[in-house]
């Protein structure tokens, strides 16, 4: 394995580990030594990869946004109706909430809750554009095919992502009576009913 590849793998494992710690313990309560310790690496070496905790936090949001964006992108590339795409996006989102709850927890509990950390460098959509772009493409395709109603981007975006985020939040609070995946059909239908032309 080449050095560059090794370094990339190491970088990703730092992100994964930090993501878990930030999501479970909270951003402020997690320190760089905590992360280094869990990875069995020296604090000094970790700083070679990320020069501050804030920078690491920003890289994590970009990373999770890109992972989610990639999955939605695959849905966007399918030759299926907007209704079916909604079903697939909801399903993949909930699957992520089950398999990698830390990714969504991070978004809800770290990214949205600690704006002072992200204001410089992650303004607006700069760090989440990986997935926001794919949602834009989904909307654009749906409206141009005539299946979805034309409306303001944010009114549609808020409905879609706010709804999904809310459900994952309820799951995190252990309020849901069923597995989140079992809500997929109803929620897909609700979103479709709200967005259709």
């Amino acid at each position: 394995m080449k050095i560059a590849e090794k370094k990339a793998l190491k970088r990703e494992s730092i992100i994964q580990t930090a993501l878990q710690l930030f999501s479970s313990k909270g951003f402020h309560k997690t320190t760089i030594p905590d992360i280094a310790k869990k990875l069995h690496m020296s604090v000094g070496n970790l700083y070679n990869y990320f020069s501050s905790k804030d920078i690491l936090a920003k890289e994590i949001i970009k990373y999770t946004s890109n992972v989610l964006g990639e999955e939605i992108r695959e849905v966007n590339m399918l030759e299926i109706s907007a209704r079916e795409k909604i079903r697939k996006i909801v399903a993949l989102y909930f699957r992520m909430a089950e398999r990698h709850p830390e990714r969504i927890e991070y978004f809800l509990r770290v990214y949205l809750a600690n704006r002072e950390v992200f204001n410089d460098g992650c303004e607006g959509m700069t760090c989440v554009s990986g997935f926001v772009t794919e949602i834009m493409i989904f909307f654009d395709d749906g409206v141009s095919s005539g299946e979805l109603r034309d409306q303001d981007f944010f009114s549609a975006f808020g409905l879609f992502m706010g709804y999904l985020g809310g459900m994952v939040f309820l799951k995190g609070e252990e309020m849901l009576t069923k597995d989140i995946g079992q809500y997929t059909d109803d929620i897909s239908l609700n979103i479709y009913a709200a967005l259709k032309a």
Binding site: M125, T133, S144, D150, A156
Partner: peptide, 24 residues
């Protein structure tokens, strides 16, 4: 526009590239 996104992209620019730049 489709939900605020221009329906026609600048000449030769892929939509994904345009929207990424736009969002940022």
């Amino acid at each position: 526009t489709n939900m605020g996104i221009p329906a026609t992209m600048p000449l030769g620019v892929p939509r994904r590239a345009y929207l990424t730049v736009t969002g940022i």
